[in-house]
C-alpha cells in the first residue's frame, strides 16, 4: 500500500513539473511574440537601430557628447576612415598587430581613440561605444564575415 501511495505521489509531482515547465516555456515564448511582426513593428525596430547608427555616425565625424572626450587633436574617426572605410569590422575578433593581442572591434575603437586621437577611452559597454559600433557595422553591411583576417 505504501509503495502504491509513493508511486502516485511521484506521478503527481512529475505531472506538475511537466505542466510547470510547459507553462514557463509557453509563457516565455508568448512574452517574446505576443503580437505578430507587422510592418509597423518592424519599422519601430529599424528606427531604434537607425537612431543608434545616426548617433554613431555623428560621433564618428567628431560630434561632441557629454561625458566623453574622443579626441584631443581635432581629428575625428572619419578623417582616416571615410565611409568607415578600412575599419573592417567583419574581420573582428582577430589578432590586432598594433595592440599585439587578440582584440574585438570595441578594443580597436578604444585603441584608436587613445593613440592616434590622443583622446580618452570610452566605456566599452556604454552608449557611445554601442552607437559607434552600430554605425560602423551599418556602414559596412554586406561585407562578408571573415573573423581573424589580417
Amino acid at each position: 500500500m505504501q509503495s502504491i501511495r509513493n508511486k502516485g505521489l511521484m506521478a503527481l509531482i512529475s505531472a506538475l513539473l511537466c505542466v510547470s515547465l510547459a507553462f514557463v516555456f509557453v509563457v516565455n515564448r508568448a512574452a517574446a511574440h505576443k503580437v505578430s511582426h507587422d510592418a509597423e513593428t518592424l519599422q519601430a525596430f529599424t528606427d531604434a537601430f537607425m537612431e543608434q547608427v545616426i548617433l554613431g555616425d555623428n560621433l564618428f565625424h567628431g560630434a561632441p557628447m557629454d561625458g566623453i572626450n574622443m579626441s584631443n587633436t581635432g581629428m575625428a574617426c572619419a578623417m582616416c576612415h571615410p565611409f568607415s572605410s578600412d575599419v573592417h569590422p567583419h574581420e573582428y575578433p582577430k589578432f590586432q598587430e598594433q595592440m599585439s593581442e587578440f582584440a574585438t572591434l570595441r578594443d580597436m575603437i578604444n585603441w584608436c581613440i587613445e593613440k592616434p586621437n590622443e583622446g580618452e577611452k570610452i566605456d566599452p559597454d556604454g552608449e557611445a561605444m554601442k552607437a559607434l559600433e552600430a554605425y560602423i557595422y551599418w556602414s559596412n553591411r554586406g561585407s562578408v564575415l571573415d573573423p581573424g583576417r589580417h
Binding site: 565611409f83 578600412d86 551599418w138
Partner: peptide, 20 residues
C-alpha cells in the same frame, strides 16, 4: 593582399554616411 591598401580593401562593402 595583406599588405596592400587596395588589395586589402576588396572584401569591404561601404555605404555613404547618413547622419548629414
Amino acid at each position: 593582399r595583406a599588405d596592400s591598401g587596395t588589395g586589402d580593401n576588396v572584401n569591404q562593402k561601404l555605404s555613404p554616411r547618413i547622419a548629414d
